[in-house]
Design a protein around this nucleic acid. Structure first.
Length: 372
RNA sequence: GUGGGCGUAGCUCAGUCGGUAGAGCACAGGGUUGUGGCCCCUGCGGCCGUGGGUUCGAGUCCCAUCGCCCACC
């Protein structure tokens, strides 16, 4: 079961408020989904996710297929049971992994030949196979298997790649017809507006449950992405959830919500936490910096998270520098709290009509960091 | 006491035939967008134990000396 209900669409800010429902629960949009590649949001027990009220996490088809493998997950009764997460799961198709490990992959019309990054073993992934594996995982929302186009490419290469993704999307749809598992199609087309619009036109007749936009944040200039999102804005059907894949920074999220996007995932809050970058309302701080050696203050005075309630920057810096596992856990917890609060705040701002102001404040705070 | 080995960046060590020094780690700053805690970039850092000598020129060759290690007495 899958449904998306649009509650309001604010003409001034461009932001949308909605409710997404699956048989495993209800979530409000705009929504940020933490990335749990291998069936776990890194450094984060499920209890923390529940505490932070995250009700939808990502899992990755490619990673879970290689390890532990579909047999183990099937034997355990599906991914939800295997990882003991009763709430909603969205599975990424593996398309992005082909992109990020493209030195190990060879793309053909039929599918992708690739070597495992774990042990070098050979595999052949097709749209059908990705759907089959996502079916075994039993995710609530499956993603079409796409060809994520690198940047930069020529318009010809981008068109070839995008059209391949569209043919693959059609094949995905045949394996997972409407009403079975929820399935989102993915718009490609690199940085070419015409290709993006063509891609969208090709997806719409396939009646996907949601429209994702992929292939951004792969090295292209940021304004280019926002220009294209703006061009797409009025062509996207209002009744479908819009998912901007792999994005992004706090400022990216506010901007993209203003362009009508409802769902996001990104490794930034969790990966950057593990590398020492912590998000705050006054900009990012790099906890490893020497200036925090003796700083008795919390990461963020304005933050209500339990890490900020208890621990000083000095202690968190020490844990990070010492390579303590707790540093990864505390840092990740804080960043996930920040992202949750950010999305809540975005929702409230849409209701208030204050999204533009919030966006300006955040842009100012993040201006100097480069994370804008 | 005798013989041998070793003293080069904060640490562990490279340094060819003699041409005024490099790496890794550490430290400092930056990067990371459908995830490997990985990784990448940049920077700081040296009276080459000390004193003589040979040489146009010594981390490198010679002498002395100090320190550490090993073996033998």
């Amino acid at each position: 079961m899958f449904s998306f209900r649009l509650e309001c669409s604010d003409p001034t800010s461009g932001g949308r408020l909605g409710v997404l429902e699956t048989s495993r629960g209800v979530v409000k949009t705009p929504l940020f989904m933490p990335v749990g590649t291998a069936g776990s949001v890194k450094a984060t027990p499920h209890e923390f996710l529940e505490e932070l009220d995250y009700r939808l996490i990502l899992a990755n088809t490619y990673h879970l297929y290689l390890r532990p493998g579909t047999a183990v997950i099937a034997e355990s009764g599906g991914l939800h049971r295997f990882i003991s997460w009763p709430k909603t799961i969205l599975s990424d198709s593996g398309g992005y992994q082909v992109f990020s490990h493209r030195e190990l992959a060879r793309i053909e019309e039929e599918g992708v030949q690739f070597r495992s990054h774990l042990d070098g073993s050979r595999h052949f992934f097709t749209p059908e196979r990705s759907m089959e594996v996502q079916g075994i995982l039993g995710s609530d929302i499956a993603m079409a298997f796409d060809d994520c186009t690198p940047y930069p490419v020529t318009v010809t290469e981008a068109a070839d790649s995008m059209r391949r993704s569209m043919r693959w999307a059609e094949r995905c749809r045949k394996v997972v017809p409407q009403g079975k598992q929820a399935l989102f199609g993915i718009v490609q087309g690199s940085t070419f507006v015409d290709l993006r619009l063509e891609s969208l036109e090709k997806l719409l007749p396939l009646e996907f449950d949601g429209i994702a936009v992929g292939g951004f944040s792969v090295g292209e200039p940021k304004p280019l992405m926002f220009d294209i999102l703006e061009e797409m804005r009025d062509r996207l059907p209002a009744h479908l959830p819009r998912y901007l894949m792999g994005v992004g920074t706090p400022v990216d999220l506010v901007r993209a919500v203003g362009l009508g996007f409802d769902m996001f995932d990104c490794v930034l809050p969790t990966r950057n936490a593990r590398n020492g970058t912590l998000f705050t309302w006054r900009g990012p701080i790099r906890i490893k910096n020497a200036c925090y050696r003796c700083d008795p203050n919390p990461i963020d005075e304005a933050c209500g998270c339990k890490v900020c309630q208890r621990y000083s920057r000095a202690y968190l810096r020490h844990l990070f520098v010492a390579g303590e596992l707790s540093a990864l856990i505390f840092n990740t917890y804080h960043n996930l709290y920040f992202y949750k609060e950010l999305m809540d705040c975005i929702g409230t701002s849409i209701r208030d009509g204050s999204l533009a102001g919030m966006r300006r404040r955040l842009e100012e705070a993040y201006q100097e960091s480069g994370l804008v």
